[in-house]
C-alpha cells in the first residue's frame, strides 16, 4: 500500500489521492501514456478496461470500455485538456455507450494528475472532481458485486 494520503471533500465533491511509487517519473508516466499498461489498472475490480483509442496529446480523445463479470460492457471517454510530459495531465472523463461514443457531452469528472520525482521515487497526486453526486454514484456502480449492489440499494431505499 503506497497511498500516502486521501482527502475527500464532500462539499466540493472532490477526492485528492496521493500515492508514492518506487519508480521514476518517466516510468509512472508510461502507465498513463501506454494504453496497454493503462488498461491493466484503470478498471475497478472485476472490470478490466480496454482502450480502443488513446490520443495522448492536448485535445486528444480516448475511447474505452470496461467488461464486467457477466460480459456486460460499460463505456467511457476521455478528453485531454492539458498535458505537460511527464509532470502533469488533465482530462475529462465521461460515460459512453458500448461502442465508446459519448452519451453525454458533459464530463462526469475532471481529473488532474501531477507527478513529482525525487531520487528515483515518484509522488503521484490525483485530484478527481465530480460534476454531480449522481455521477459519482454511477461510477461506483461498476466493480461492485451484485449482492453488495442490492444490499446498498436496499439501504439507500431505506434511508
Amino acid at each position: 500500500m503506497t497511498v500516502v494520503s486521501s482527502n475527500p471533500d464532500r462539499e466540493s465533491l472532490t477526492m485528492t489521492i496521493v500515492c508514492e511509487f518506487d519508480a521514476t517519473v518517466d516510468r509512472v508516466w508510461q502507465l498513463w501514456e501506454d494504453p496497454r499498461q493503462l488498461e491493466r489498472w484503470w478498471g475497478p475490480p472485476g472490470w478490466p478496461a480496454t482502450f480502443e483509442r488513446h490520443e495522448f496529446e492536448e485535445g486528444g480523445a480516448s475511447r474505452y470500455y470496461m467488461t464486467g463479470p457477466e460480459g456486460e460492457r460499460a463505456g467511457g471517454w476521455w478528453r485531454i485538456t492539458a498535458i505537460d510530459r511527464p509532470a502533469r495531465l488533465e482530462f475529462d472523463d465521461g460515460f459512453a455507450d458500448e461502442s465508446g461514443e459519448p452519451t453525454d457531452e458533459m464530463p462526469t469528472m475532471r481529473m488532474t494528475v501531477t507527478l513529482d520525482g525525487d531520487d528515483g521515487r515518484t509522488r503521484m497526486t490525483v485530484l478527481a472532481r465530480f460534476a454531480a453526486i449522481d455521477d459519482l454514484e454511477r461510477v461506483l456502480e461498476m466493480g461492485m458485486e451484485e449482492g453488495m449492489k442490492q444490499a446498498l440499494a436496499q439501504i439507500d431505499a431505506l434511508l
Binding site: 486521501s6 464532500r10 465533491l13 477526492m15 489521492i17 475497478p44 459519482l136 461510477v139 461506483l140 466493480g143
Partner: peptide, 10 residues
C-alpha cells in the same frame, strides 16, 4: 460515496 471511490483508487 467518496469513501467508496477512495477504495477504487486503492
Amino acid at each position: 460515496l467518496l469513501a467508496r471511490y477512495e477504495r477504487v483508487w486503492r
